[in-house]
Design a protein around this nucleic acid. Sequence first.
DNA 1: ACCAATTATATTGTGCACAACTTATTATCA
DNA 2: TGATAATAAGTTGTGCACAATATAATTGGT
Lengths: 148, 148
Amino acid sequence: MESSDVLALDNQVCFALYAANRAVTARYRPLLAELGLTYPQYLVMLVLWEGADGGQVRVTDIGERLRLDSGTLTPLLKRLEQGGLVERRRSTEDERSVIVTLTEKGQTLQNQARQIPARLLCDSGVEPEKIAALRDELRALLSRLEDA
Amino acid sequence: MESSDVLALDNQVCFALYAANRAVTARYRPLLAELGLTYPQYLVMLVLWEGADGGQVRVTDIGERLRLDSGTLTPLLKRLEQGGLVERRRSTEDERSVIVTLTEKGQTLQNQARQIPARLLCDSGVEPEKIAALRDELRALLSRLEDA
DNA sequence: ACCAATTATATTGTGCACAACTTATTATCA
DNA sequence: TGATAATAAGTTGTGCACAATATAATTGGT
């Protein structure tokens, strides 16, 4: 029967993941546009707002957190810098590293961003418990894939 | 407490989705490279291999299935055409539409592709039932987002 | 101290995604 | 029928992702 075909689109987790990811991102887009951010830029800001390492965050640290490399992050961070949200400077103790710090404007933006998760949940009308369960399953999948 | 912060990266479903999607795609990449396909190209081939509409598949049909627009599909299909996997021609009954059909080479590729889902599951070592459950939850989320 | 290996970021090139716009064709209805 | 709207692809421009490579700085072993 058709529905058991290993190549049927609707049987693929990969496609469900791909489509759901783009649908969620599309939901974020108008809300983030109000802050002048794209979705990946928002993720970088989340890392910076967590303020680990006392603000001494290297490009590599962001990359490890988000699983992104310098080829993605360098131009993204330059755009955030142009928008006045972050500053980039070479570390004095290790000239190979670039330290990314929030500007005043970048810090202030966090207050506006706090409303986003709630607005998104409200818009989509999905139960918070289901969302949390899904999140945990996805994280489990991710660590499985990263370990193997 | 930190773990309840609405902006904490690890609390975001969106990030779990984003990271898991890229991790899964990364798993596909080397397998698909053997077929000369990228991941989105593979999804288009899945649609064509399903052979709906008796091979009379328009660009719009592919777009509806994959939730992609012509701005993404047109160049992608041109690359598939250059690779000799598909043909593109204007519909005779509606000159606005472009009909995409599989070439002999494109059809043959399906046989090589059939092994991919099994190899992927094997590599990642995740239980098939869990995968199926996750897929269904993601699809439910997707239809929620598309309806609202 | 010197050299090889490692590390951190940047650059280049390809291929998506998606918004905004254009062009061509078909459908609608006054 | 003739203007107008709707539809289907294509084009252009921006911003990711990621592979491959380059450059510069640091580290480790001798």
